[in-house]
């Protein structure tokens, strides 16, 4: 090395390679970019695979000469093994349990969100939010245990013989508790996204905190809250373990909360858990149900995303 005092002279190449501005082939750089692109695009393949596999088997199901769309959507008994294809036997239970769940989770979740975002002190939030997070992190099979062995016995003491051991009410109630944290946290995000100026505007006109919250903030966050509800519904429709454990094991076209009935998801879980031979009508029928589930939740999710994006733009 040269004996230099302070400065490093530019354009000298001590230890450096020579300048050459011409484009270099950076093979590893392009290779990595290619790999990353593949990782990014893989999620598209997953969706395509879902649609293709579910669609293919579902098509086999609907191509069976015995199965008609009329029977599928027009009758209420489901037992593919003996030629009964009325999907309503399963949809009724899905609708019932999901409705109970939303009826529980919406008011509770929304109220929690309003409290957390408008009323709670920093300290309260630091206690309350983790509780909701824990609730959200409990595996659904544990909620199933809770429904069957805690909620159902309590309902039993209330309704006595009026209620069956497996029933939609218990499953729906517990599902509501499961969805509560989801609705609460999404709604809270929507509420806290409402600009401070809007609240201050209301306070400056002499409104109380409640009036501000309910008449200014909540309406302003309505679309975000709507998105939360839609995601909640989608989660309820797709939930499996609670209903598989607590709602009943057998299709039953009934909207009576105290009856046992099997949801679409519960049915898939029960039938696929046994020994299934591929290409049987039992096997393909499960894919038809799964395809319906996928499409319903897809539409719900798309709507909620669209709503959230619209909502976000509103304040930007």
């Amino acid at each position: 090395m040269k004996e230099e005092t302070l400065n490093i002279k530019p354009m000298e190449t001590r230890g450096f390679r020579q300048f050459n501005l011409k484009k270099k082939l950076r093979i590893s750089e392009s290779l990595i970019q290619g790999l990353l692109f593949f990782a990014g695009i893989l999620s598209i393949f997953v969706t395509v695979a879902i649609v293709y596999e579910l669609g293919k088997e579902a098509l086999l199901f609907f191509n069976d000469p015995d199965v008609t769309l009329g029977k599928f959507f027009g009758t209420t008994k489901w037992q593919p093994g003996i030629g009964q294809y009325g999907i309503w036997a399963l949809v009724s239970a899905t609708l019932t349990t999901s409705s109970i769940a939303i009826l529980i989770a919406l008011p509770l979740g929304l109220a929690s969100a309003v409290y957390l975002s408008e009323y709670a002190t920093q300290k309260m939030r630091s206690i309350l939010k983790p509780i909701l997070e824990i609730l959200a992190g409990i595996p659904t099979v544990v909620y199933g245990y809770f429904a069957l062995l805690f909620v159902t016995p309590i309902l039993k003491t209330i309704f006595k013989d009026g209620i069956q051991v497996y029933n939609m009410l218990s499953a729906g109630l517990v599902m509501g508790i499961m969805i509560l944290p989801l609705i609460a946290s999404m709604s809270e995000d929507a509420l806290s996204a409402v600009p401070r100026a809007l609240r201050e505007g209301a306070y400056a006109m002499g409104a109380t905190k409640l009036e501000t919250s309910l008449q200014v903030v909540v309406p302003a966050a309505l679309s975000g809250i709507g998105a939360a509800v839609i995601v909640g519904i989608s989660r309820a429709v797709g939930e499996t373990m609670i209903v598989a454990v607590a709602a009943g094991a057998g299709p039953n076209f009934s909207f009576n909360l105290l009856d046992a009935a099997e949801t679409m998801t519960g049915h898939i879980a029960r039938i696929s858990g046994g020994d299934l031979s591929y290409n049987s009508i039992d096997y393909t029928s499960l894919f038809a149900i799964a395809l319906m589930l996928f499409l319903v939740t897809l539409v719900l999710n798309l709507i909620s995303q669209w709503v959230v994006n619209k909502f976000r733009e509103q304040y930007e």
Binding site: I50, E53, L54, V231, T240, S272, T297
Partner: peptide
């Protein structure tokens, strides 16, 4: 698509 996949019911992944 990624956002949507996050909302697909887990049992559908089971079918896949």
């Amino acid at each position: 698509n990624i956002n949507n996949l996050a909302g697909v019911p887990s049992i559908v992944y089971g079918m896949l």
